[in-house]
Structures are given as C-alpha cells and as structure tokens.
Design a protein around this nucleic acid. Structure first.
Length: 449
RNA sequence: GCCCCGGUAGUGUAGCGGUCUAUCAUCCGAGCCUGUCGAGCUCGGGACUCGGGUCCGAAUCCCGACCGGGGCGCCA
C-alpha cells in the first residue's frame, strides 16, 4: 500500500510497447508489464519495463517528483506495474523514445531474490529453468519458441485443410493400447481400469471406414517408456494423419512431405521476428525429399564402416550417421527411410506388407537431421490378413473387437502416420533438448510444474 | 531397464585431504552519482544435498539414499 502513489485507476487501455511510435510522441499512454531492470543514477533513473512484445524505458527525474522517484527506486525487479505518462522522443533511449511517468501503480510486487533471473548475466540449468518455468518464459527467446510452435501448427492446419483433411478428436482414455501394453499408463476409470492413449491409431483407422476418409488429429499421446533421453517425453503432441483410397505408402509420404514443406514456409514467412530473436533462418527444403530405402541405408552405413547387418535396426547411432551422410553428400536435412523390412515392423501388426515381397513393408520414417520425426505407411485393410498378423503377434483379438469390426463391413485401403510435433520443432530450431519445446514437460522424473 | 558422469550462496561456478574463516561472477541489501542500457564506484549479505564410515583432520576419500546431466535400448 505504501508504494502506491494513487488508487488503482479505473481499467483503461494498456498500450503495448510495439504500438508506440512517433505518432504517440507528446501524448499520454498507459503501459503495463514487468520491471526488467532499474538504473538509479541519483537524480535520474531508468526503469526497463517489459511487456509481451518488448521493452520500454521509463525515465524518472528526482527534481520532477521526489515521491515518484523514490517509489521507482523501491520496486523489486519482475514486479508488475502500470505506468501512465508522456511519450517523449529520445536519442539516448534504445527504442527512440521513453516515457516520463505521471503515475505508477505497483500491481504486484515480486519477492526477492528471484529463484531464476530473467536477465541475469549468468546461465541456469534446464532443470532450474523448468522448475521456474513461468520466470523462464519471461525471456523473449524462450517465448519465441512457443510462438513459432504455434505458427508451425497453424501452417500444418492450413495445409491439411487445403487438402481436404478434417480435424478430429479421439479419446485419450482407452481400454486397450495400439501396440502392446508395456508403454501404457494405467488409470482408474470409475470402477474399471483403463489407460491413457499412447496413440490414436485404432480410432483413426476406424474412421477410414466412415467417409471421413481424410482426417488428422493434433493431441497429446502418452508413453510410459522408461526413456531418459533428450528426445523422449511421457506426454507429447502427436500429429496423426490418416487417409483412405490410397494406392501405396507413396501417397502417405506425399502428405507428410507437404506438411513439412508448408509449415516450414509458414514459419519462415510469419515468424520472422521470432526466428531473428533466436538467430535462426529457415530454408525451404529440396523437394521431393529423397527416399532412402532401408536396404540402401544399411549399405550406406556399411560403407562408412559401421557394423550393421540387413534386418537389424538402424539404431540411434545409425540414424545419426545417416543424417551426416545425407547432409554431407546431398546437402539434405529431410529424407525418408522407406521400405522397412517386415521383421522390424512385426510389433506394428497393422502395417501392410508388400504383395510382391511379404518380407518388406511400405513403412517409412521421415528423418530430420538424423532424427526420426515421422513414422507411418500403408495399413493392412483386409480383415483376414490383419487378423492373421495380429495372431502372429499374440494379440488378444477380443479386446480389439471394436477395431476389427471396422474392417468387416467395408474398409477401403488406407494409410497414415504419426508426426512428433515437439521433435519437429526441436530439430527445426536446433534445440538441445525436446523439453525446450514443451511448456511443462512430463518425463519419468518430472510431474511438476 | 542398462552404462557413464555430477550434486558448493537465490543463480552459475572454482576448489578435490590440513594453507577453506571456501574462489569468482551474478544476485540481494545500504550508500554515491542527471543519460543508463554488460552502467560505474564504496560497503555489506549469502553455500559445501542428506545419512553413515575412514582419518589426528573431510567440501575434498569410501558406502548408501535422494536429486540432476549424458549415452544406449525403444520410440514421435
């Protein structure tokens, strides 16, 4: 109360820093934000006030108002204040203008010391930052990541809508998993047990039997994998696409490619400021993305001296090495690894095997600089074959009855993929850890905040 | 799940058996300063994750717990 110069004003329009320009010079504005920094030089003080878009300087003169001057000097950093004052052109101020305050309201005083400095000249560990994410997000360069992520999703939605895809929502509380039970989070569902969905796989395939035959979903997926890595989290945003009446996995790859190309362009065009803040540029990738068949990838890795045999998984090491090769020899950051052998896709019981070669599927991964961001392909739509493939994998057919039913009454050929949105953003922005691309990440150790 | 590595002021670090009454920066507090924006100057404040053990002596060595980082497997 003591630091309030006057009573709170009737709510009035707050001008964002970005909106102030020469046309406001000499006029009165009200700005609101967080106290980023304060320089008190004795007779004059400079307060840097940060709002959503930038920083404005509030310049206070002792000789103009001792009371106001002392108030300014007493406000802890990161407090929220409302300043009403006159905009004055200034050669010294960074923005070209500053605000001479008439009134200052301290709306919320910040405690000291801060658990995490916003503009301190020392770094902080990711763990410390995530524990204090609201403060971390006060940094421009951190918020930029999430504005870009929003832009990515906007670009994806625009593109898919233009291709006739319908956005849907499927349940995240499910009775059975899409691929085995080990990675499911069990939950209580009234008197029964249920799981958090690890993938919308079964539902999006079910929809292919309806006439909603080009769909996508952007939603959380949950994986209880004990994976402590910089590219795994327990709750991630999955873009799932499914489309019917396809001829082969190629049709599916074309959409995956379209999503990447169009969202990259959208980011480049619409997120210029945020990219600049991060010191990044986004180039249009070369199209079409190269298709590296699995068997060719193995040969390429062998030629590099890697110990790998046909039928083995490429592994993290192999994926990274392939990323290096593609970058070095083709100057290429985005490429498909296609035609995965059936032996590596057995767990993926719904994957269609090639008619001419049952030992090979049309399944593909899309890798971005040596990391998998998309996985998909054509599904098996023939009921009898699907059931046989499930039996091979010892699936309990009864618990998949709702799923299998969809294949018995008219199911067109179809295919689709899962696309890891945060992984995509991680690679796009060169972030060292996927958690940087998640506001409040969930992993094996972290449940708060 | 497996394998490495690490936990020192609010934050980020140096120290790795006695010289530690623990370094530096940032930060916080008090003061000086009318053009600061990596401000400057003076003074002050604040830490060895926890529990055992070894030793004359432990921040330092050993064991355990807890917490964190990285890699692998697997995956988006």
């Amino acid at each position: 109360m003591a630091d309030r110069v006057r009573h709170l004003p009737v709510w009035q329009h707050v001008t964002y820093s970005k909106e102030i320009g020469p046309s406001q010079f000499g006029t009165q504005v009200t700005v609101g934000g967080w106290v980023q920094d304060l320089r008190n030089l004795g007779g004059i003080s400079f307060l840097q006030l940060r709002d959503r878009d930038g920083v404005v300087q509030i310049t206070t003169l002792k000789k103009r108002s001792k009371e106001l001057f002392e108030l300014v000097a007493s406000i802890p950093r990161e407090s929220v204040i409302l300043v009403t004052g006159t905009v004055k052109e200034s050669k010294e101020a960074r923005a070209g203008f500053e605000i001479l305050p008439e009134t200052i309201d301290v709306l919320s005083r910040a405690e000291t010391p801060l658990p995490l400095g916003v503009v301190d000249k020392v770094g902080a560990d990711l763990d410390t930052r995530l524990n204090n994410r609201f403060l971390d997000l006060r940094k421009e360069e951190v918020r930029a990541i999430f504005r870009i992520e929003s832009c990515v999703l906007e670009g994806i939605r625009k593109y898919l809508a233009s291709e006739g895809f319908v956005e849907v929502n499927t349940p995240k509380i499910v009775a059975a998993g899409a691929e085995g039970g080990s990675t499911l989070f069990p939950i209580k569902y009234f008197e029964r047990s249920a799981y958090l969905a690890q993938s919308p796989q079964l539902y999006k395939q079910n929809l292919m039997a309806t006439g909603l035959d080009r769909i996508y979903e952007i939603a959380h997926a949950y994986r209880a994998e004990a994976s402590d890595t910089i590219r795994h989290i327990a709750e991630f945003v999955s873009l799932d696409v499914e489309m019917a009446f396809i001829k082969s996995s190629e049709d599916v790859m074309a959409v995956a490619e379209g999503i990447v190309v169009n969202s990259l362009r959208h980011v480049r065009e619409s997120a210029k400021d945020d990219l600049a803040r991060l010191g990044l540029t986004v180039e249009d990738p070369q199209t079409p993305f190269p298709r590296v068949r699995y068997k060719d990838a193995v040969e390429m890795l062998k030629a590099e001296g890697m110990k790998i045999e046909h039928g083995e998984d490429l592994g993290t090491e192999g994926e990274k090495a392939l990323g290096d090769i593609m970058n070095r020899e083709k100057n290429c950051e985005l490429y498909f690894i296609s035609e995965f052998p059936t032996s590596l896709k057995r767990g993926t019981f719904y994957a269609k095997r090639m008619d001419e070669d049952p030992e090979t599927t049309g399944y593909f991964d899309l890798d971005y600089r040596g990391q998998e961001i998309v996985s998909g392909g054509q599904r098996e739509h023939r009921y009898d074959v699907l059931v046989e493939q499930m039996r091979e994998n010892n699936f309990n057919l009864e618990s998949f009855d709702f799923y299998l039913k969809g294949f018995r009454y008219g199911m067109p050929p179809h295919g689709g993929f899962g696309f890891g949105v945060e992984r995509y953003v991680q690679k796009m922005l060169n972030l060292p850890n996927i958690r940087e691309a998640v506001l409040f990440p969930r992993d094996r150790a972290r449940l708060v905040p």
